[in-house]
Deep mutational scan, measured.
Amino acid sequence: ETEYTFDDKREADRAAKEAQNNGLRVHVTKDGNRWKVRID
């Protein structure tokens, strides 16, 4: 399990989409004014 934090939602969405394309499970959550992408 890996977690990334992004300031920009577009960057978070791009990272999530890339991980999904690689067959990974992805969870995107909002943390204040930042975005967390957790990859299982």
Score class of each variant (00 low, 15 high):
K30V: 08
K17L: 12
R14C: 11
L24T: 03
D40E: 15
T5I: 15
T2M: 14
L24Y: 11
D8K: 06
D31W: 02
R34T: 04
F6T: 03
H27M: 12
R14W: 09
R38P: 01
D40P: 04
Y4S: 06
D7Y: 08
E3I: 13
R10Y: 13
D31I: 10
D8V: 05
R38K: 13
V28A: 01
K9Y: 14
A12F: 01
V37C: 05
R38Q: 09
K30L: 06
T5W: 15
D7P: 06
Y4I: 10
A19I: 08
G32W: 00
V26A: 14
D7E: 11
R25M: 10
E18M: 10
D31R: 03
A19K: 03
R10N: 14
T29Q: 09
A12L: 02
D8I: 04
L24W: 08
A19N: 03
E18N: 10
K30E: 06
E18Y: 04
K36M: 08
R34M: 06
R10W: 15
R10L: 13
N33D: 14
E3Y: 10
T2Y: 15
D31Q: 07
N21T: 09
T29S: 12
I39G: 02
G32S: 01
N21S: 13
D31T: 07
V26I: 04
A16Q: 05
Q20V: 12
T5A: 07
V37A: 00
Y4H: 08
E3R: 03
G23Y: 01
N21G: 11
G23C: 09
V28S: 01
F6P: 02
A19R: 03
G32A: 02
T2D: 10
D13W: 11
T2Q: 12
E18R: 12
E18T: 09
H27K: 11
D13K: 08
A19T: 02
N21H: 10
D40K: 10
E11N: 07
D7G: 07
F6Q: 02
D31H: 08
D8Y: 06
V28I: 12
A12S: 02
N22H: 13
E18V: 12
H27E: 12
F6Y: 10
A12W: 00
E3W: 12
V28M: 07
A19W: 11
R10E: 15
Y4Q: 09
R34G: 07
Q20Y: 11
A15C: 15
G23V: 01
L24I: 05
V28G: 00
A16V: 11
D40S: 15
D7H: 08
V28E: 01
D31S: 08
N22P: 02
D40W: 11
D13S: 07
N21W: 05
K36S: 03
W35L: 04
A15S: 05
V28K: 02
E18A: 11
D13A: 08
R14E: 12
V28W: 00
G23P: 00
G32I: 00
K17C: 11
N33R: 03
E3N: 06
Y4C: 14
K30Q: 12
F6S: 02
H27N: 09
T29A: 07
R14A: 13
R25I: 13
V26G: 03
E1L: 13
A19P: 02
R25V: 13
T29K: 08
E18I: 14
N22E: 10
R38I: 15
N21R: 13
L24N: 07
N21I: 10
K17N: 10
D8R: 04
R25Y: 06
A12K: 01
E3H: 05
A12D: 01
F6R: 00
Q20C: 15
I39K: 00
V26H: 01
I39L: 07
L24M: 11
R34I: 04
V28N: 00
T29H: 08
G32R: 00
E1S: 13
A16F: 06
L24C: 10
D7I: 09
K17E: 11
F6D: 02
E18G: 05
Q20E: 13
D13Q: 11
V26M: 02
D40G: 13
D8F: 04
N22F: 01
G32D: 06
K30A: 09
K9M: 07
A19H: 09
G23I: 01
W35P: 04
T2P: 07
K9I: 10
A19V: 03
R10S: 15
N21A: 14
Y4R: 09
T5Y: 15
K9C: 12
V28D: 00
D13L: 15
V37G: 01
K9F: 14
K36F: 07
E11R: 04
R38G: 05
T29N: 06
K30S: 08
H27F: 06
E1P: 11
E18H: 11
D7V: 09
A15H: 09
N22D: 08
Q20P: 01
T29G: 05
R14P: 03
R10P: 08
N33I: 03
K30Y: 09
W35D: 04
D7W: 05
N22Y: 00
T2I: 15
Q20K: 12
R10F: 13
A12E: 00
W35S: 04
A19S: 04
R25P: 06
G32T: 00
T29C: 14
R10I: 13
N33K: 05
T29M: 10
K17W: 08
V37S: 00
N33Q: 06
T5P: 03
D31K: 04
R25N: 11
V37W: 00
F6V: 03
D13E: 13
D8N: 13
K17R: 14
D31L: 06
L24D: 04
N21E: 14
D40M: 15
E18Q: 11
R34D: 06
K30G: 04
T5K: 04
